[in-house]
């Protein structure tokens, strides 16, 4: 197992390397002099000088890439000019907030998606199946940002159950109950689409598995139907559900950008949008590379989980 994890980690190195190349090339598309483009309205002479020194902007493209990469490997993602603090500090702080939001949503979509999918498959064409199928269709069709706004109208404005936005109450907040109070709506809004996708996939994976011969064997042994469904069938279906969970994690992370804007959640998605509007290029660059690399690592965890579940995968 250890060697398998190591192997997967080694395979991730070129992918992360490729990610930096792609981001670098995209940013190199910015027309005009890079220093002024990066600095925009912050192009004071000392900032320009600092940037030229840090990023080697007077050097050819390839050299510039390796200087940038070298800096990042030392944990130096550059300076955010709009915030006047190191990019990495801001990114880490914001990413932490995003993880709380997206992580909760990911758990929600996994649990409820699989639950709904299994029930739907076990009761195929029954009432529960039809109801779930309809809700799922609605769920995957409603834009998360619109859903979030409607939730604010209903649960925050009308019913006043939950706060409109933010991560903590401004006065006297900051503890866990306060966080959960603020987290509920955005986490739910973010989870809806992914839950729908996971539910659909789980349903078809379960239907596929329930037709297999080993399910008939389990029934012939006299295994209780509940265990046939939630044990034998789900266990086998997980083999095709888990890779989709990996993909869904990417969608949850993407959707977090909208949800963070709607609910004023101080996460990395909102940071990126603000940075784009402020034309703080280094902040965008650093944030994108950092999150993409984290996502690659998350997918390794998914692969490892898959290999733990399926003894047929060579480790």
């Amino acid at each position: 197992m250890g060697s398998y994890i190591l192997k997967r980690l080694l395979l991730a190195v070129p992918v992360i390397f490729g990610i930096t190349v792609i981001v670098f090339l995209i940013m190199a598309m910015i027309p005009g002099d890079p220093a002024t483009a990066i600095l925009g309205s912050y192009a004071t002479p000392e900032n320009v000088a600092r940037l030229n020194r840090d990023l080697g902007l007077d050097q050819p493209l390839v050299a510039r890439y390796f200087i940038w990469l070298g800096n990042m490997l030392h944990g130096d993602f550059g300076q955010s000019f709009s915030l006047n603090r190191p990019v990495i500090d801001e990114v880490l702080e914001r990413f932490n907030n995003t993880l709380i939001l997206a992580g909760t949503s990911f758990v929600l979509c996994t649990v409820f998606g699989i639950l709904a999918g299994v029930v739907s498959a076990a009761r195929q064409y029954g009432f529960a199946d039809k109801a779930i199928t309809f809700v799922v269709l609605l769920g995957i069709s409603i834009p998360s940002f619109f859903l979030g706004m409607m939730m604010i109208l209903i649960f925050a404005v009308d019913l006043q159950w939950l706060p409109v936005s933010g991560m903590y109450a401004i006065y006297g907040g900051g503890d866990l109950p306060d966080l959960l109070h603020h987290l509920t709506m955005p986490a739910l809004a973010l989870a809806v689409v992914a839950t729908g996708v996971v539910a659909r996939l789980s349903r078809s994976a379960m239907l596929e598995v329930l037709r297999q011969d080993f399910i008939r064997t389990a029934r012939a042994k006299g295994v209780k139907e509940g265990r046939v469904i939630w044990g034998h069938a789900l266990r086998a279906a997980m083999v095709s559900i888990i890779p989709v969970l990996g993909i869904q994690a990417g969608f949850v992370l993407s959707g977090a950008v909208y949800i963070e804007i709607v609910f004023q959640w101080p996460g990395i998605g909102r940071m990126l949008v603000d940075a784009i509007l402020q034309r703080d290029i280094l902040l965008v660059q650093g944030g994108v590379v950092f999150v993409a690399a984290c996502y690659v690592i998350f997918n390794i965890i998914v692969d490892v989980a898959q290999s733990l579940l399926d003894p047929r995968i060579k480790t």
Partner: peptide, 19 residues
């Protein structure tokens, strides 16, 4: 494969940031 390794919106944001 590299392009697919990104959560899709990050790539879109990076492109919008550049353009």
């Amino acid at each position: 494969d590299m392009l697919m390794a990104f959560p899709y919106i990050l790539l879109a944001l990076a492109i919008v940031a550049a353009l």
